[in-house]
Design a protein around this nucleic acid. Structure first.
Length: 428
RNA sequence: GCAGAGAUGGCAGAGUGGUCGAAUGCGCACGACUCGAAAUCGUGUUACGUAGGAAUACGUACGGAGGUUCGAAUCCUCUUCUCUGCGCCA
């Protein structure tokens, strides 16, 4: 949600931003907001003066009652009752206008960063940098589940029976590798000065509706039967929810947090879930980073954050590239987004393993996350980025580290978490 | 899960229908005293919205939602959380 003052003061900038995102149908919303805002203020000042009158009259009634002038008091009461009738009408109108205003404001996208390339959809995203040489081995790289099955590392058939499509059993060294990657990523982020955090894996509807739209909620969130609780789709939900409607201490900024959680997603309407394998699934685990900082610091943090992910992948010897999301592919709340993609020697292309976003104050304004400064209370800036999400990243891992004999190489940095072993070999 | 008590400003804590945005204490800011400090004294110190250049004015908010009333921190209903006791449990 952007600052309404921006619309009041620089309507053209807001409209230009909408055009850059190819959302021209939303242009009329901006004019509607101006109108509604005017009406809202008019109603408020009318209501305020009526209330001021009522407060004065009520005090008068108190006085008259004390002096036992009941008749006069009743006369004044009648005036107040008439006022109240009008107040009720105003109240209803105000409520309607405010609901519509809020809805409009939520649909108006955040102002995008100057470096965001203009483009309609993800096909126009722009590659920024590459790290490590993307290699294609001489032998054919099988589909990731075939690699994992040969290593006795996965059992999807059983998972289908117990839980249905989109689930998996990881077993043996592969399961251990999964945990090792998470533990290594956790320690890596702690080493960068982040505070490790394990959040609630379920949150209330109140928090859910704070962090996402109704459509997103319907398409993603699993609800707990008979309770006002939802399984989180990412730890960002509970991590950001933690600061909803709070004023954080300026001295504690920037808050740099790294959280672990399982993530549950319906993936409703996405065909990817039908795919064989563990690319798109209902349940996965993820290490995430969250930064809450002062506005003037968010641009620097953004650069740092996605470079941390890059550094992590490079340390595990997996080639990656960064991809700048173009204007049309950027979600409405985002100022800027960079995806980190890992190399797939099988597909001979890069695929997404993480996404880093700077939401500036749009998310904070929507959720009421502020800090107290000399200038008064200011909305903070929020950023989030994937450190690593192992089931998906395991695809990149086994594809890149597969050797011709079917074994998978374990990079140096992970060995302490794998009992010192340097490879996983097929059984038999 | 059951029963009882509670939720008020940065903190502690009064207030049970009308000059209550809220006593008092602590904290904090500024000033006086002092060579300087402590102590002491004085002044100030909630947030949000609207109008205004500003001083300020008006409105709203006493966990949250709704209700009663001319008027609600105060009465009623629901809800969330906290504490105490019992029960249950990794």
């Amino acid at each position: 949600m952007i600052d309404i003052n921006l619309i009041r003061n620089d309507l053209e900038a807001v409209k230009e931003n909408i055009r850059k995102k190819f959302q021209d149908r939303k242009l009329s919303l901006v004019d509607e907001v101006i109108e509604l805002d005017k009406k809202k203020r008019a109603l408020q000042s009318e209501g305020d003066s009526l209330r001021a009158q009522r407060n004065a009259l009520s005090r008068q009634i108190g006085e008259l009652m004390k002096q036992k002038k009941t008749e006069e008091a009743n006369a004044v009461k009648a005036t107040v009752t008439a006022n109240n009738a009008r107040l009720e009408v105003i109240g209803k109108e105000q409520e309607e206008i405010e609901t519509q205003l809020k809805k409009d404001m939520m649909s108006i996208p955040n102002i995008i960063a100057p470096e965001v390339p203009i483009g309609k959809d993800d096909s126009e995203n722009v590659e920024r940098e590459r790290f490590l040489e993307p290699k294609v081995p001489a032998f054919e790289v099988p589909y990731h589940t075939d690699i994992l099955e040969r290593l006795s590392g996965i059992d999807i058939d059983s998972a289908r029976r117990t839980s249905g499509q989109g689930f998996y059993y990881l077993t043996g060294d592969i399961a251990r590798l999964h945990s090792a990657v998470l533990a290594y990523a956790r320690d890596f982020m702690i080493g960068k000065g982040f505070t490790y955090c394990i959040p609630p894996f379920m949150i209330r509807s109140e928090v859910v509706s704070g962090v996402m739209s109704f459509e997103e909620m319907d398409g993603m969130m699993y609800k707990i039967e008979g309770e006002d609780l939802y399984l989180i789709g990412t730890s960002e939900h509970s991590m950001i929810g933690r600061f909803m409607n709070t004023i954080v201490d300026e001295k504690s900024l920037p808050l740099t947090l790294t959280s672990y959680s399982p993530c549950f997603r319906k993936e409703k309407g996405s065909h990817g879930i039908e795919e064989r394998g563990i690319y798109r699934i209902h349940q996965f685990e993820k290490q995430e980073m969250i930064v809450i900082c002062k506005p003037e610091e968010s641009r620097d943090w953004f650069e740092k954050l996605y470079h941390y992910t890059v550094e992590l992948f490079v340390s595990m010897e997996i080639p990656v590239r960064t991809l700048e999301c173009c204007s049309g592919d950027l979600a409405d709340l985002k100022y800027r987004s960079i995806d980190v993609e890992a190399w797939s020697p099988r597909q001979k292309k890069y695929f997404e393993v993480g996404s880093c976003s700077n939401l500036t104050d749009a998310q904070a304004r929507r959720l009421g996350i502020r800090y107290k400064s000399e200038k008064g209370n200011v909305f903070a800036h929020t950023l989030n980025n994937t450190v690593v999400a192992p089931p998906r990243m395991l695809i990149a891992f086994v594809e890149n580290h597969l050797r011709e004999d079917g074994s998978v190489y374990i990079p140096e940095v992970l060995r302490p978490y794998m009992g010192g072993i340097s490879e996983i070999r097929p059984k038999k």
